[in-house]
Design a protein around this nucleic acid. Structure first.
Length: 428
RNA sequence: GGCCCCAUCGUCUAGAGGCCUAGGACAUCAGAUUCUCAAUCUGGGUACACGGGUUCGAAUCCCGUUGGGGCCGCCA
C-alpha cells in the first residue's frame, strides 16, 4: 500500500509542542514506509486564523527538519469541494437542514474503531448524544465544520493513515460514520496519547502560569537555544522507544525502526530537565562550524573567527542551552567585563603573588596550556603556596568569575596580550 | 452526568507468564577527580496503584476499585 499521512494543524497562534510530536510521528511513519507526508492547514475558523501563525507552523516544521511532500493545502480555498460533498450527503439522505444549518444523520449504533495503537475501541453514544445524535456539518452561514472538512479532505487526499492526538479518539466515531455515508472505507487510525506537564496538567498555550504556558509552544525551545535535533530526539522518546538502553539516537535509525503498533498507550509527561540534558549532549557533539553559526544567532559575534571558534570550543562542553553562551563567555570578547563582587569576596587576592605570576607569564617563550600550567605550578612551589592560591585570583582577574573552563586552556585561548593586560589592570 | 483511553522508580522508558531479589536514562543523594563547577567518573536510594481471580507460577492474562487523561460545540 502507498502510505499517505497528513499533519493538519489549524493556524491559531503558536505551534503547540504536542502538535509538533504529532507532526513528527506522521513524518516518521511516512519516511519509514516511503509514503507521502501531506501538510494541510485547517483554517475553517476564519475568526481565529492569522497569517502570522501560518508562518509559525511552516517555520517550526522546517526548524525541526520535518519536510513535507505535498501542500500546504488550505481548507479556506476548498469551499467548492465541501459544497459538492455536502450536496452528495443531502442526495443520499444522510444530511438535512435545520435552523439554516446542515446536519449529518449520525448512526445510533456503537461504532468500532480499529485503532492501530489503542486496539479495537467500541464507541457508544453518550447520554447527551443519545438525545440528539446528529451534528452540524455546515453552519448556517454556509461555512463547513471541522469534522466534515477533515473527513472530506482525508478522503479527497487519499489519506491512508490518520495519526493524530488521542483527543480525537472519541470523535473518530463521527468520522467513520461520515466515511460510510460517502460510501468509502475510512483510513486506518492511530491515536497517539497526549503529552502533559510534569504535574499531570494539560500543556496549554494559555495556561495561567506563564512558565507552563511557555513550555507548550515550540517557540520557547527555539528561543532558549535548544537544537532541533535534540528536541526531535527527545520527542521521539515520548511514547516510543528503540527498546535498547540508548537515549541519543540518529534520526535515520529512528526512521528505520519506527512503527505505529509499538507506540505506547499511556500519556507521557514532558520533562524539560531531561530535554535540557539531551541538548547539552547534542551541543557537545557539534562540530566547530555548526556551533559557530548557531552561536551567531545567540549574539556571539566577533570578527576574529579563529578566536571566536576557539572560545566556543572551550565552552561547548559546559553549556546545555545556546542561550547560556553570552553570559558564560562575555569576558572573552570585551575588556569591559564585570568583576563579580561575590567572586572577589569568595577568593581573596594577594596582589604580590598575582604580580609575580604576571611577571613570570610575561617571559614565557610559548603560550600554551601545558607551559602555563607548568610555570604556575613551579611558581607556587617557589613561593611555598598551594596552586589554588594563584589559580583562583588569576581566574578572577582574567574573567571576573569563579567558575569557567579549565584555567590553563582558558588562558591559552585568551592569548598572551589579553591575559597580561588583565592581570596588570586587575585591582581586587 | 454519559461514553472512551490509560496505570512499572519523581520523570521518560525496558519488560509480550518463569531469564525480575524488575534493567537503562534524566533528576536526586554520596564519594572521587581536576584549579573552579554549571564539567567528568564511580556508587547508593527510589517503582510493578489497590483488591479479587486464572495458573504449579503474574509486572505481564481476566474482573472490580481507585486514580489520571480525553470527548460529548453552528471551536479545531
Amino acid at each position: 500500500m502507498n502510505v499517505r499521512v497528513r499533519f493538519a494543524p489549524s493556524p491559531t497562534g503558536a505551534l503547540h509542542i504536542g502538535s509538533v510530536r504529532t507532526a513528527l510521528f506522521n513524518w516518521l511513519y511516512a519516511r519509514h514506509t516511503g509514503g507521502a507526508f501531506v501538510l494541510r492547514i485547517e483554517d475553517t475558523d476564519v475568526a481565529r486564523n492569522t497569517e502570522q501563525s501560518l508562518n509559525t507552523i511552516l517555520d517550526g516544521l522546517k526548524w525541526l527538519g520535518l519536510d513535507w511532500d505535498e501542500g500546504p493545502y488550505f481548507q479556506s480555498k476548498r469551499a467548492e469541494i465541501y459544497r459538492q460533498r455536502a450536496q452528495q450527503l443531502r442526495d443520499v439522505g444522510h444530511a438535512y437542514e435545520r435552523d439554516g444549518a446542515l446536519r449529518f444523520r449520525m448512526t445510533r449504533e456503537p461504532v468500532v474503531i480499529n485503532d492501530l495503537i489503542a486496539g479495537p475501541v467500541t464507541r457508544a453514544l453518550g447520554d447527551r448524544e443519545v438525545s440528539d445524535p446528529d451534528f452540524v456539518i455546515v453552519r448556517s452561514d454556509g461555512t463547513p465544520v471541522f469534522h466534515f472538512v477533515n473527513v472530506v479532505d482525508d478522503l479527497e487526499m487519499k489519506i491512508t493513515h490518520v495519526i493524530r492526538g488521542e483527543d480525537h479518539l472519541s470523535n473518530t466515531a463521527k468520522h467513520i460514520a461520515l466515511f460510510r455515508a460517502f460510501g468509502v472505507e475510512s483510513p486506518a487510525y492511530a491515536h497517539i496519547p497526549m503529552i502533559l506537564n510534569v504535574d499531570g496538567s494539560k500543556m496549554s498555550k494559555s495556561d495561567p502560569d506563564p512558565a507552563k504556558a511557555r513550555l507548550a509552544s515550540l517557540t520557547a525551545y527555539v528561543e532558549d537555544g535548544y537544537l532541533p535535533e535534540a528536541v526531535r530526539n527527545y520527542l521521539c522518546l515520548l511514547g516510543w522507544s528503540p527498546k535498547d538502553d540508548r537515549q541519543i539516537l540518529p534520526i535515520a535509525e529512528v526512521i528505520q525502526k519506527f512503527d505505529l503498533p509499538q507506540i505506547l498507550r499511556h500519556n507521557a509527561k514532558f520533562d524539560v530537565t531531561k530535554l535540557e540534558w539531551m541538548n547539552g549532549q547534542y551541543i557537545n557533539a557539534l562540530t566547530s562550524d555548526e556551533l559557530d553559526w548557531r552561536a551567531a544567532t545567540f549574539g556571539i559575534k566577533c570578527a576574529d573567527a579563529p578566536y571566536r571558534r576557539a572560545v566556543l570550543n572551550l565552552l561547548k562542553g559546559k553549556i546545555s542551552l545556546l542561550k547560556q553562551l553570552p553570559e558564560r563567555c562575555g569576558y572573552f570578547f570585551t575588556e569591559d567585563f564585570l568583576i563579580d563582587p561575590a567572586a572577589v569576596a569568595k577568593s581573596p587576592v594577594d596582589p604580590v603573588m598575582l604580580t609575580k605570576l604576571t611577571d613570570r607569564y610575561a617571559t614565557l617563550p610559548v603560550w600554551d596550556a601545558a607551559t602555563l600550567e607548568s610555570n604556575l605550578k613551579a611558581l607556587a612551589g617557589e613561593l611555598g603556596v598551594k596552586t589554588g592560591q594563584l589559580i583562583h585570583p588569576c581566574r578572577l582577574a582574567v574573567s571576573g568569575q569563579t567558575v569557567g573552563p579549565s584555567l590553563y586552556h582558558m588562558l591559552e585561548v585568551l592569548g598572551r596580550d589579553r591575559v597580561l593586560s588583565r592581570l596588570r589592570k586587575f585591582k581586587p
